[in-house]
Design a protein around this nucleic acid. Sequence first.
RNA 1: UCCUCGGUAGCUCAGUGGUAGAGCGGUCGGCUGUUAACCGAUUGGUCGGGGGUUCGACUCCCUCCCGGGGAGCCA
Length: 428
Amino acid sequence: MQRIKELPKRIGEEVVLRGWLMNARSSGKIAFLQVRDGSGVVQAVASRAELSERAWEDVQKITQESALRLTGTVSEDPRSPSGVEIHLLDLAVEHLSEEFPITKKEHGTGFLMDHRHLWLRSSRQRAALKVRSEVSQAIRDFHYERDFVLIDSPILTPAACEGTSTLFETDYFGDQAYLSQSGQLYLEPAAAVFGKVYCFGPTFRAEKSKTRRHLMEFWMVEPEVAFLEFAGLCDLAEEFISYLVARVLDRCAEELKVLERETSKLEAATSPFPRITYTEAIETLQKSAVSIEWGEDFGGDDETILAEQFDRPVLVTHYPTALKAFYMEPDPDNPELALALDVLAPEGYGEIIGGSQRIHDHDLLKRRLEEHELPLEAFQWYLDVRRYGTFPHSGFGMGIERFVAWVCGLKHLRETIPYPRMLNKIYP
RNA sequence: UCCUCGGUAGCUCAGUGGUAGAGCGGUCGGCUGUUAACCGAUUGGUCGGGGGUUCGACUCCCUCCCGGGGAGCCA
């Protein structure tokens, strides 16, 4: 069977295609069928004179999204949208579709989300998911090429990584278990095995967030590297982002075109990225007449203002310790600050990476657990990493949906994942 | 959880006290190069649920339900 993508190599040949009807335009004795097979879209031209009576009748009655088997000859034609078209010789209707809910005209988001399984067939959704797939592959290739070992962290976990309020709870043979919200803690012991490790999988947050930048279930990639200190972590994050962007520009040109993404904005995302400290960021915001004091965290608007200062992602470093997670290493020059890093995407897409150097001193980490009122017994295994040949190490996490949203220029995260899980919405 | 906007035909919406409308879709007919094709006809409704005000409620009031957008929090 022929795939539409390969048709330009088959000019003049007779081929058989199977696919779905996107749209049909009929003009009496000639009809134009837009057919999709998963690899691409092609126009088939059906003329009454060249078809059997039965085939012509089928052309008249086929509905949007019907499954078809087409036989025809391939020709180049500048009048066809793709430059290639099929002159139809025969048509078999494999299934006559019922009236398809998603039409060529506009629909509201609520309706589209209720029909997500069908909405996926439309070209923009298709393009976004193709980019997501390429990003996933590029993430694996990036780590593989650099000798990282994949560590699959557990999804069912006994306790919180960073707190309990945002965890999905489930029953585990009579005990409580929670869906993982980060693989990081499980990665740190593995860094002592392989030196360079990463995990990549779904994570779950039960936070009642109802914004375009949040999902209840999202995919996160988290590298963790032994003996990597903070400066090296910043370099790694920068190299990672620019690698992924270059890969999408190289391999997803068609998809970015469908998404009408202005690629010049992405082409700028090459090393080096600007780097500012939290304190500098606060000063910048205050100059922009934002009322924010040192010690406060940034809101979504603040992140946008900061990112707008630059044409590529910006690294914001050295946050106040009080704002960050318990495991982050204090800056040796100023213990008020954490060796923490956020990467903000341009154009208002916000935080795509959060990471830090980790505390490797046992006593300090234990003290931080106590300060955060976390149960020591539950973290004993995590403290063990600091008892048996402890080592400085660093890592970060990137939510791939936010990255894909930025690269694709999508306003809402729900279009970057096949079946988004959102606040109070888990269908289909 | 809070703020805000909304719920009328399969879809997108208009109608804001006096018998329910349009475009698209569907159906039927016309058209030999269409590009969300076009032209003509036609089909299509417990106006989110409940209660109240009124001679009369899609319209005003109360209440509940559902959805969109945003805030906080984060990736």
